[in-house]
Amino acid sequence: MDSTHSADSHHLIPYRAYVAVWLALVSLTGVTVGVSYLDLKHAAILVAVVIATVKCVLVILYFMHIRYERPVFTWILVTGFGSFGIFLLLTFADYFYR
């Protein structure tokens, strides 16, 4: 059972690391709300999505431990997000040119 145990308990991440990530997430939320008051027209949605993506990566890497999992997990994620991205892009090929 020892080896099973070692399979399960990866890095013990210090509590304060989680809190630091949380602080970063909260401040990014503040930034995205703040930016929304600037009059950016259609760029607003792009900025919002970029900030959201950064937040998303933080959550995935630290809260969801992907940084400490083996590489195959990253590949699984890349496949999923990549497919979504490609679906989105290819659908744009219709709507942009309508």
């Binding site: 999505v49 937040k55 998303c56």
Partner: peptide, 24 residues
Amino acid sequence: ENVGLYWHLVDLVWIFLFPLFYLI
């Protein structure tokens, strides 16, 4: 851990929903 992952996913979705609906 798996329940935790599910909960973080709920968070992830909201991270995108919030700016797209409230901030544009």
